[in-house]
Design a protein around this nucleic acid. Structure first.
Lengths: 117, 117
DNA sequence: ATAATTGGTAAGCGTATGCTTATATAAATA
DNA sequence: TATTTATATAAGCATACGCTTACCAATTAT
């Protein structure tokens, strides 16, 4: 784990606590204490979770006096939306049978090379 | 873990191997052996990963003879895209200045306690 | 019929994860 | 100045994770 280490953002959002933190600070920046009030776990636990969110670039932190304000960095969230969104074609017209699936793939191919048909 | 147990889909996509499996079978249904050829890990390992993908509804399986064909179930992927996509507003007009936020807070506070000032 | 192929499951193992409590530090408050 | 507050970090611990090998069942090929 060097200094340029960047944690996998998909691994980061796997934890429901971290997703809730993201949700909270996406509405407005929040210091750690305020965030912790939304959970039943200790503040060190929250601190550790935030550290993970920082390491993968989902959260940025600014120290103001003794408080640490957390703000969201939406860029990494966009990467996730893009990854899942690349399969949008699959849920447009839903495939519920193996045969249909094969058919659809075939159609796609035809579309792609349609001008050569 | 009862029969109606459903694994967290965010946890499921946290593993890079599982994401690669998703990527492979999103292009076309594939049996386990074929999938395994894309990896350096054992077939039982792949089998276990696929089981997890089934448990969270990302993959459906069809037994044909002795082969097990895996097809993607895009519905759960849409949930992920929706979750990440709900923050789209944040990356459109980005709030990158903490000062802006403090300003906003200050305004709020003044509103709240303004009459006692 | 026998052997090979495909894949599922169990046991075991090293490592990662997510929490706790204890301790330390810096900043605000009385 | 002494105390409280906000936070970070370390150590420890139980559990989850992801892989391996060993084994079994079912299907296909020889």
């Amino acid at each position: 784990m060097t200094s340029e280490y960047r944690r996998d953002v998909f691994q980061a959002i796997a934890d429901p606590t971290r997703r809730k933190i993201i949700d909270l600070i996406s509405q407005q920046p929040m210091n750690l204490k305020t965030i912790a009030e939304y959970f039943d776990i200790s503040r060190p636990a929250i601190s550790q979770q935030i550290k993970i969110l920082i390491e993968c670039g989902l959260v940025e932190v600014k120290r103001v006096g003794r408080e640490t304000y957390c703000t969201i960095q939406p860029g990494e969230l966009k990467k996730i939306a893009d990854w899942a969104g690349q399969y949008a074609g699959l849920w447009e017209d839903r495939i519920d049978s193996f045969e249909k699936y094969v058919n659809k793939l075939h159609t796609k191919k035809n579309k792609k090379y349609g001008k050569f048909k």
